[in-house]
Amino acid sequence: MHSLTAKQKGTAGVADEVRIPINSEYDIVTARKIGRELAAQIGFSSAEQVAIATAISEIARNIVQFARHGEMSIGIVRQGDRRGIVIVARDEGPGIPDINLAMQDGYSTGGGLGLGLPGSKRMMDEFDIISTVGKGTKVTMKKWIRKNA
């Protein structure tokens, strides 16, 4: 048994992961379909499946729109006796200069509704975004299965 440092914690227990290259709008449809199927498979309710697929759609569209190319991985995450879904989206695009601003409802630079990031955060249980201007963006989001559902 090995101990985990704080930095390793995020990736602990990730298994059964599917990687999807995100290079065009068609990959958005593929990613959300895979996400929904996995969510159904591990026992999320149908409303939660739709929420997960919608969040995937928003985050994948950000990649296509701003970075053009990137990758999404969708997998099962376990923490103690909790199970959930983890989605990691990575790109090497232009990055987000002001994350706090980008996380505000209605703030948009891409001609959209400005709901993608804050809306996705509302639909998931955990949402992390790391972005460096000129280097890229990484979004990690998780949703846990409700025990008594």
Binding site: S46, A47, Q49, V50, A51, T54, E58, D105, L113, L115, P118, G119, S120, R122, M123
Partner: peptide, 14 residues
């Protein structure tokens, strides 16, 4: 619009 979709749309803020 399916009930689950309506639910997600409102959460997203659409």
């Amino acid at each position: 619009i399916q009930p689950e979709v309506a639910f997600a749309m409102v959460q997203l803020g659409l």
